[in-house]
Nucleic acid binder design. Structure first.
Lengths: 215, 215
DNA sequence: TGATATGTGTACCATTCAGTAAATAATACG
DNA sequence: CGTATTATTTACTGAATGGTACACATATCA
């Protein structure tokens, strides 16, 4: 019923990586790999554009296995989003740890460029492409994605406000406006990537955007 | 079979607005109004997120009437996109006529802000929300939308190159980069609008973006 | 060897999808 | 009037949607 096969650290020998082996028939597929496959599909085709048949065929499993492991389509999508946030979209949170506001913005933009210009991934950003416009059936997923984008903006704004207090951002600057601007640029680059923009082209968009940074 | 009821200018009296009245049962709904309704639905829910039932119910007509008047779902969408381009999204082309590169960029951004901040419309941009991520069934529509966004970028680049030749844009500036930057900002604002950003907030994003403009 | 617990495979469910056949209704023209 | 033409209505099609019942397979534990 649960995802994880609950890897428990029992300090027996040196290599205590294996799970304690639960009873019942063992799962015949790799959950983590299946999640990765689902992520790439949702990333490319969006939540509603990806059917259960698309998913099970790509994962190489049957419908009931998917439901047993991930709940349903919506729960699977949420798990994919979580994985995305701690994987490919990691820079959205790690960038906040940079020492100055400018470096935070630069790291955020550079991270987006790296992600969006990477040809080993679908072009775009799951947070933007996942459920931007969809039917009313998926309104909740849609709103959640919007809320997560807004939350990223809020974190950025608070980071910039802190920077202002710390003195590395002019008092004349507006943290909320700067946060929204960085969000606009990175999300705009996500749309550009979907139109076929290359990594170099996106990087130059980022460089231009940083020209607007308050001095 | 055709859309228009073919308003022909026959200079009989002063007011020659009415159509010559074709034979057959007259259409019971206003084609233009139906297109407007369809546009708002596609705008809000995207191409795949809008079902024929959504459309016919909102238009107040039956399925066969829709097919007789507009062909099919895809053709209807293309007609909606055309209407959008000459209506709400007009600024994307009219801005090019501004006298200087800077004024073109400002007009483009201001036009986007006005559109995206207008609460009488769905939040966002049809060119971005219409078919950003979708199933493979709609790949053609998706590619067409990407091509139209790219085309807008090309027009902008050529306009900036002309400006450079005319001397109102520094020779050190890069027209292609500037065009892509303006596109990134406006499309990013479209995503922000979908997350709930207000017109005032978007306007400040636009002001910040113009700070990056070459002097 | 059971008993229990879990996963897989097949085959199905009701609903919705885009699209259409055919009968009927409303107009123009002769 | 009758004929031709076009639009509306109802009812339908086959395929795809998300989700599930149930029999069977494979594991642990006693």
């Amino acid at each position: 019923m649960d995802i994880s096969t609950s890897t428990i650290n029992l300090p027996k020998g040196m290599k205590s990586e294996k799970t304690p082996a639960a009873p019942g028939r063992p799962r015949a597929f790799d959950v983590d790999q299946a999640l990765e496959t689902a992520m790439n599909l949702f990333w490319k085709q969006g939540y509603e554009g990806t059917s259960l048949t698309d998913l099970t065929e790509a994962m190489g499993i049957n419908r009931p296995s998917l439901y047993a492991a991930f709940g349903n389509k919506e729960e699977l999508f949420r798990k994919v989003v979580e994985r995305y946030g701690s994987g490919p979209g990691r820079h959205a949170t790690t960038s906040l740890a940079e020492p100055t506001a400018r470096q935070v913005a630069e790291a955020m933009i550079r991270g987006s460029v790296n992600l969006l210009g990477d040809k080993s991934h679908p072009r775009g950003c799951l947070m933007v492409h996942g459920a931007l416009a969809c039917s009313e059936d998926s309104a909740e997923v849609q709103q959640d994605m919007a809320a997560m984008r807004s939350s990223a903006e809020t974190q950025l704004r608070e980071r910039f406000a802190r920077a202002q207090a710390e003195g590395d951002l002019p008092v004349t600057a507006n943290p909320a406006d700067l946060a929204r601007f960085v969000q606009a640029v990175t999300q705009g680059m996500a749309v550009l990537a979907a139109s076929g923009a290359t990594g170099e082209e996106l990087a130059r968009v980022g460089d231009l955007a940083m020209q607007a940074w308050p001095k």
